[in-house]
Nucleic acid binder design. Structure first.
Lengths: 177, 177, 177, 177
DNA sequence: TATGAATGAGAGTTCATTCAT
DNA sequence: AATGAATGAACTCTCATTCAT
């Protein structure tokens, strides 16, 4: 499954045939179907796996109300996760932006997204009660854009400086005006 | 070609067979090849077309140095263009995030990106001489994230409010600290 | 038609599409069908044309009985013709050796072959009455092999020396033993 | 593979589609590609196979210098081989005379040709030191013409008589004058 | 006479999936 | 648990030919 994630992430889901996966894990094509019902189901499980891991990371730290420090910590976490699971995120983006994505995968991912950003609604609500939703959307855009840039061209910019700038932005509260 | 853009944008380049395109424009598969040498070339031409249109929009307004007003105007333009060419941008994102993208398309797009963002380097250099590059990356992330969210789920948020917030951010200069 | 012969000879009948021919003669594909009913018929006419020309060359010189000098002259003629119509012969060989050749073409060519070699039956009958048929076959093999080698790799040997050797062979009568 | 050789030989490489081959061996088109990477590679393997067999036949008998008896034996061998592998030779001729032949096939065949005829250069050099090359070309033409006639119309002449005549020619040394 | 848009059959090839062993 | 031969549908692309203009 690690091999599959690697292949899918590197070459794209469509471009990786079951034959390639089979060769990658050095078993026969036929045997692959003893472990996964279909190619779709295989992808689905890969995504599930990774999503669960990500939940594990975040759920432990962030439940209930969120303080300012926890918010900044969350940003740190996102950057760490993004760098650790780059392959997964690359796959996710290439899937997300491909219309007609597998339904189950779509559900899981949009669930993840909702859970994470939902968690911060209360936070933003407290910080900027005038329009917390737009505050959320802004934050979400910023993070998604960052991830996208990092995931597909990690060497094209200094990620730590960007992280610093984002944290700075949310520290000096100037976004509240 | 409009039909192709529509189909590619809706279902993804890989998922749209030449047969589907042919059916879409109600001609025979064979005849399609009187107009386009190959599927790749067809995509390439679609992208070229749209890229040229975009250049036309921006080049007219922005040449040489950029004032603060022009910068804000540019943000407006991006939002207008994003809304007008949503199909194209959807296609672009789905292509960009697919590994092994067609080379010609890649060239065109990275050229467009460089030209546009390069234009703003001088602007940011003036506004925040300490670290204009990170400023650019931040701006680029924000816009890309916004586009991505809009392009794939336009109904999920109020785009005008987001635009307003972005312009506000760049107006009160708090990002310079 | 010269263009067609050139193309067919150079690239092979199968490999030359009607589009290529049309481009070669700089008329439209459609118009081509005003002159030739089909691709087959086009080939047929090309072959016919050339065959007639060859008949014209030989018929004038060789009718009725053949003397030894006329026989040697014939060999000369074959070599001249082979060098002049190399393109045609190249096409002929590539057609002959392709099974399922067009019937009409096949007829014409086998007719040509029979006429020419038939002409020499009487000659060989006189020269070597014991087995004129084998004498003919030997002669025919020698000439066909020579043509084939010349037509497909003219630069690979000295054709004049070969001609000289063949004529020498038929001059010193040692083949009659 | 025997079926393929048979089909290719009978109908010509171009004219035989993979579908026909598949039908011939009564498996699906798709399955064919488990055995051969492509149509070209299939042809290539057929040719390789036959060429190796031919090498096996000749290499065992003829190494180093060649006596007159061995030379006559070689002619015998050629006739035997020609009759045994008629299908293969038919395919070879139809390929050779088709422009743009597959490179790999061409290599194998020209290699075979060079090896075999090269072997006889020393022989002719001894027999006719004045012009061994033309002697070779003459011999080569004669054999190629014979093969061509036999391969495409075996019933049109008595091959044994022709063989006899050829051997006779090379026996009474009258070609040396 | 000339065009070129249009067609449909068929080419080689790929691939997810199945199944007897 | 494991194989790999087998399948059939789908893919991109080609081409001889037709026909309205």
């Amino acid at each position: 499954m690690e091999v599959s994630l690697d292949l899918f992430s590197r070459q794209g889901y469509e471009a990786v045939s079951m034959a390639k996966v089979a060769k990658g894990v050095e078993i026969s094509k036929g045997n692959l179907y003893n472990y996964f019902e279909s190619k779709e189901q295989m992808l689905s499980e890969i995504v599930l796996n990774a999503v669960e891991e990500i939940y594990r990371d975040f759920d432990s730290n962030h439940d209930g109300e969120i303080s300012h420090e926890e918010f900044l910590k969350f940003i740190d976490d996102v950057f760490v996760n993004m760098q650790q699971n780059r392959k997964f995120w690359k796959l996710v983006f290439s899937l997300l932006l491909q219309p007609n994505m597998l339904e189950i995968v779509e559900e899981k991912l949009s669930g993840l997204s909702k859970d994470i950003f939902g968690l911060f609604y209360t936070y933003f609500n407290k910080e900027n009660p005038k329009d917390p939703v737009t505050e959320m959307v802004f934050f979400s855009s910023l993070l998604k854009g960052t991830m996208m840039q990092y995931v597909f061209a990690p060497e094209s910019f200094d990620i730590d400086k960007l992280k610093h700038k984002i944290k700075l932005y949310y520290s000096n509260h100037c976004h509240q005006k």
